[in-house]
């Protein structure tokens, strides 16, 4: 069966989540085609052609696909996707925005955020904030799927030599337009791809105190995350939120500081390899999932940890 993957990219390069999605496609098996839709996205298409396991790259370079508005890109995906057995995208905000729209245009269901491929039509996915794992089987002719990146090991970004084909078709639904974007700047690793994540919660008390976590994160080469409580309180921006409705992470080491461990937060980090919790409440639910728990005041423990590294 042939597989079409909608690439996550920024016109210049391919984002890491695409590599995990290619891994899921390899688990399904079949010829893999990557679609790069954007404006001035030639460099991203060249990068996609180098991904291990990719057979072909379709480059849809058109003003209508600038900023990858769902109204336009979904029409393109639905048009091209008719000829494929599977349409995949990473479960990023972009994939989640566009793919269900394309699925409905093709009159097929979507299976969201798969964590494993059991067979050609059967997949596992978490429901109820990750408290239940469902094994689901699709009866649709075209299987439209988003992939939870942390559940699949990324394939190599280099080593492939796919051909790049230009796609001429331009779809402009004409009912939406891009106004502006505010990108949160950070020199630290990307939260969803980092091997170490340090997260702060309500216990941090204010945004200034996050400086302690930034210092610790810099020593560990870590990304910094947050609980919903910390975001809602305005300590840090929302793109740092880890949880059921924020980002899903699964680093080698996750350090939760001043986070109680609500169901919704655990949904975003409990697949981390090693979890450390620093909390002064010894009954906090976070200790039930932590490999190493330290019952202590974070304002003493974090600086001490920082200076001992």
């Amino acid at each position: 069966m042939s597989i079409l993957i909608l690439a996550e990219h920024d016109n210049a390069s391919i984002k890491g989540a695409t590599l995990n999605t290619v891994a899921a496609a390899k688990a399904i098996g079949g010829d893999i085609t990557v679609l790069v839709a954007g404006e001035g996205c030639g460099a991203a298409a060249e990068a996609a052609a180098k991904i291990e396991g990719v057979g072909k790259v379709l480059c849809a370079d058109n003003a209508a696909y600038g900023h990858q508005l769902a109204e336009n890109v979904s029409l393109l995906v639905a048009e091209l996707g008719k000829d494929y057995g599977y349409i995949l995208a990473p479960a990023t905000t972009n994939g989640k925005n566009t793919l269900p729209r394309a699925a409905a245009l093709l009159d097929v269901a979507q299976i969201s955020e798969i964590i494993s491929v059991e067979s050609a039509d059967t997949f596992k996915r978490p429901i109820y904030a990750g408290n239940v794992i469902a094994t689901v089987q699709s009866s649709d002719a075209i299987k439209v799927i988003t992939v939870r990146a942390t559940a699949f090991d990324a394939v190599a970004a280099e080593g492939g030599s796919a051909s790049v084909e230009a796609v001429a078709s331009a779809h402009d639904a004409g009912n939406s337009s891009y106004v502006r974007e505010e990108v949160a700047k950070s020199d630290r690793p990307d939260l969803t791809a980092a091997s170490v994540v340090v997260s702060g919660g309500r216990g941090m008390q204010n945004g200034d105190n996050f400086a302690m976590l930034y210092s610790l994160a810099d020593k560990l080469g870590a990304a910094v995350g947050a609980s919903r409580a910390a975001v809602d309180a305005g300590f840090v921006p929302n793109d740092m939120q880890v949880g059921q409705t924020g980002k899903i992470v699964a680093p080698g080491l996750y350090i939760a500081v001043g986070i109680s461990g609500a169901i919704q937060h655990l949904a975003g980090m409990k697949d981390s390899k090693v979890i450390v919790a620093i909390n002064k409440d010894e009954d906090a639910p976070i200790f039930q999932v932590a490999d190493y728990g330290l019952v202590a005041d974070l304002f003493d423990a974090v600086p001490e940890l920082d200076s001992s590294l």
Binding site: I127, K270, G293, V295
Partner: peptide, 18 residues
């Protein structure tokens, strides 16, 4: 269009230490 074949609890984490 999608049939749920089975639901199960996620893999348990090994108990940690303090």
């Amino acid at each position: 269009r999608v049939t749920t074949l089975k639901v199960e609890p996620p893999a348990e984490r090994q108990a940690g230490i303090k």
